[in-house]
Simulated assay, not measured.
Amino acid sequence: MNIGQAARRSGLSSKMIRYYEAIGLLQPATRSDSGYRTYQTEDLHRLAFIKRSRDLGFSLEEVGKLLTLWQDRERASADVKALAMQHIDELNKRIDELISLRDTLGELVAHCQGDDRPDCPILKDLANGSGCCDQG
């Protein structure tokens, strides 16, 4: 199948498929006599694996490691589990950061009158930043 067909079947864009080839997550496609990329069923399986991994939030580097483990029939499932657990830890940190951001913004919104006056604690906080600059 050509890249357009592979894109439709995998749920990825043609651009992403070319990118995954360029960075080595996907083997370069074979080329037809006219120079068009052609993909096989195994390429679709690999693309589905990449897409699902990315949907779960794995970085491109982690996807590469997962692909290596997936192809290694001698690998220990403990290696896969360790990588997944590390990713869960990173997700939990990001969740904590997002909760903190939400709570901070919620506090600012709660203190904003939301009326016609120009005084706005949200903008005041943004202008004050993280204390990086002199207030003088």
Rank of each mutant, 00 (worst) to 15 (best):
M1C: 09
N2T: 00
I3V: 11
Q5M: 03
Q5G: 02
R9Q: 15
R9I: 05
G11M: 07
G11L: 08
S13Y: 09
M16G: 04
I17G: 00
Y20N: 00
E21A: 03
E21Q: 05
A22V: 06
A22H: 03
I23Q: 01
L25F: 11
L25Q: 08
A29P: 03
A29K: 02
R31N: 07
S32G: 13
Y36F: 05
Y36I: 01
Y36R: 01
R37A: 04
E42S: 14
L44G: 13
L44Y: 12
L44K: 14
H45V: 11
R46T: 14
R46K: 14
I50R: 03
K51E: 06
S53A: 08
S53T: 01
S53W: 00
D55Y: 05
D55I: 04
L56N: 09
L56W: 07
F58Q: 04
S59I: 12
L60N: 01
E62N: 02
V63S: 02
G64S: 09
G64P: 10
G64Y: 09
K65V: 08
K65A: 07
L66A: 07
T68C: 12
T68M: 14
L69V: 00
D72E: 07
D72C: 04
E74R: 12
E74W: 10
R75W: 11
S77N: 14
A78V: 00
D79M: 04
D79I: 03
K81Q: 11
K81R: 15
K81V: 02
L83G: 09
Q86L: 14
H87P: 01
E90Y: 07
L91R: 06
L91D: 14
N92T: 12
K93F: 09
K93N: 10
K93V: 12
R94D: 07
R94M: 11
I95H: 06
D96P: 02
R102A: 13
R102L: 10
T104P: 06
L105Y: 15
E107D: 13
L108F: 08
A110N: 08
A110T: 09
A110R: 07
H111S: 13
G114Q: 03
D115N: 15
D115L: 08
D115A: 07
D119L: 11
D119S: 12
C120Y: 15
L126Y: 08
A127I: 15
G129H: 02
S130P: 06
G131N: 05
G131C: 06
C132L: 11
C133P: 06
G136C: 08
